[in-house]
Amino acid sequence: MSHQIEFHGVKKVFGEGADAVHAFGPVDLTIHQGEFVSLLGPSGCGKSTLMLMTSGLLEPTEGQVVIGGKPVNGPQTDVGIMFQDNTLVPWRTVRGNIELQLEMRGLSTAEYSERVDQMLAAVHMEEFSDRHPYELSGGMQQRAAFCQAMVHTPGTMLLDEPLGKLDAMTRERIRSDLQTLWMQQRPTVIFVTHSIEEAFQLSTKVAVITPRPGCIERIIDVDLPFPRDFEVKSSPEFSAHVREAQEIFRSYGVI
């Protein structure tokens, strides 16, 4: 099954009449299967709104989202979702939380046991599988949350600022873990972020979003080899991309 995601004139307005807030769009965008696309923009520009509409958890006011040739009507189950505040529950261990995703879908935890081990190893969390979330640092919690969001091998990943609450150093490390996971499984990813550097490090494409109402100002193809480490980040091509995005935001008075 293809996991190409298409947005056809997608627009969202909250409320009605005089109180209506035009939050987002209209937007046209096509994300090919296996691509890692970042929605890069300042807070309040409707990035999360677009993500929720993609997952079918929020209905667009106008237009249509199409995944794998099928229009999105209602919640999509072949997706993995992650938010800034993770969905780890305090009454389960790290492993139990990952298994929650499987149990909710009626999948056998025994069958996935090996996969859970592999994923925990990929994010350096093997030793913490029996710990509860509150025993872990914020960074470790987000690593566990990545595993929870990906354990059922979704074709599409929707990541809404998953690193937003972490300190700069932890972000750096988890970014590379995230990249490893993505390169292993190659799902189609929509990654919401307001970090310019993060967007260009991780993505094959960056959609630069301007605020109120959120609109895609430019789509920048990032043609740099994976995995992208510090070497790539200090390359002139990388700096040029970063500067391009910065100039757009500066012209809109965002930075």
Binding site: L52, S55, L57, P75, T77, I81, D85, T87, V89, M104
Partner: peptide
């Protein structure tokens, strides 16, 4: 129930 957990459970189709 938190907004995130509500969305999470809906996305699982559970």
């Amino acid at each position: 129930l938190s907004e995130e957990l509500t969305l999470f459970s809906r996305s699982t189709g559970g």
